[in-house]
Amino acid sequence: MRFRGKIVDIGCIQHFTSKCCHTNNVVIMTLISFNWMLFTRVIGTLSKLIKVCVLRITSGNWYFILSERLGHFFDEYAMEGVSNDDNEIYLELAPENLVKALKTAQAAKWIKIKLTKKHGPCLTVDVDLPTLGTHSRTVVHDIPVSVIPRRLWQDYEEPELPQFDVSITMPQIKMLRNVVDKMKNLSNFVVLSANQNGEMKLLVETDMVSISTHFRDLDI
């Protein structure tokens, strides 16, 4: 079981798309074509969402389960799974540790992420920092991980996307955020409804107040 990857691209974020869905309490986030700056941000968001997540490494993808798929992301990539038939790796780790490790990588020339065996299984983050002279400065972080045995892999299968009844374009995210932010102060729950006429409604009801915000003329 081996894994090693290297990222060099520090350019701006290009062609970034993300997709989210919720099923059976599993959040899947699929990310296509982006660089490690974004990776840092993804991990940042991730660490706020959950304490421990599962990292599944396959020949083409990285799954954080609460799950992330990373493609076209490493400049060098080598992995060897448990066996040829099950060419995957499932790891459990605390995303917070990964965030801390990636913090030093903000200005890095490249970072290398490896699965290593030190005292226990570790995800080693090798960060090469830029220097003025010829010496290289390398920071190494070892993040302890636990390897998930094959018999538990089925728990982390990607959920099926449900069939949609209504699919609607969200209104201006800034306004939506303001509204939801204010509603959050008043209640823990919000009712969201949308219809095929391009209308969306957010509703909050408490003992003291009921607020409904109507968005109209949205694209279906």
Binding site: M175, D207, M208, I211, T213, H214
Partner: peptide
């Protein structure tokens, strides 16, 4: 109302 978006509030 702001930019075509309506909010109704009913406060006790």
């Amino acid at each position: 109302e702001e930019e075509g978006v309506l909010t109704d509030c009913s406060i006790k």
